[in-house]
Design a protein around this nucleic acid. Structure first.
Lengths: 112, 112
DNA sequence: GCCTTGATCAACTGATGTGTTGAATATAGG
DNA sequence: CCTATATTCAACACATCAGTTGATCAAGGC
């Protein structure tokens, strides 16, 4: 289930916020409930709840049910798809740079 | 020069738009001017010019000068920093998953 | 049943993003 | 010089985002 354009929009937009990135950092160390996630932040629980919804809609986290709690879990496969998207262009550019360097070396050889 | 929080905001926000991602895809195949970049899109040149400014402010592209043209070049090192940011949390999560799997295997052994 | 706790929904505000049009700047080229 | 080309600036409209407060829903514990 590769990301379509709208899913990429949602995923990158989700990462474009320091609070949501901090939530991801926290979740990389293990699952947590909404209350646990909200605790370190100076903003309301409702604001954190909405940040979590954004991360979930972006596919970056999943949620389970534990009584009245809704624990959040990081979704590493979604993160992996984002790095793949970025890397395809980064690697293409780096390959191109290497080809240019090689060409310049060839010209320099002929110059001698 | 690692990305600080605001630089991450700008970089991920820059990627959270299909036009800007298409510009990056185009630039991965080589440098291009504003006019060249704008050509495939149904929006105004000014809108593309601003998208390019966003990419430049995010550090994802650099610009040179060629007479009246301002060619754009993709900056692979900035892309690399973004994948590094994502990967630190993805890899931590995957390590944690493996530890849990190993623990479950141990329990299963003892159960037999 | 009833109150508490965990979490979400709804409505509103202020800030920011994305597009437009029209004007301005700067370099190229005859 | 003068005009055409490449690009940007400025001002505006419209949509979306991030935060707030107040109300609501759902599950637990007694």
């Amino acid at each position: 289930m590769a990301f379509d354009e709208e899913a990429l929009d949602r995923a990158f937009l989700a990462l474009a916020d320091p609070v949501r990135r901090a939530l991801i950092a926290r979740l990389s160390r293990g699952p947590a409930t909404v209350n646990e996630l909200a605790e370190p932040f100076p903003i309301t629980l409702q604001a954190i709840s909405r940040h979590i919804s954004v991360l979930e809609a972006a596919g970056l986290i999943t949620r389970t049910r534990d009584g009245q709690r809704r624990p959040c879990h990081l979704a590493p496969s979604a993160l992996e798809q984002l790095t793949s998207w970025i890397d395809q262009y980064r690697l293409e550019t780096e390959r191109r740079f290497r080809r240019i360097d090689a060409l310049l070396d060839t010209v320099k050889e002929q110059d001698q």
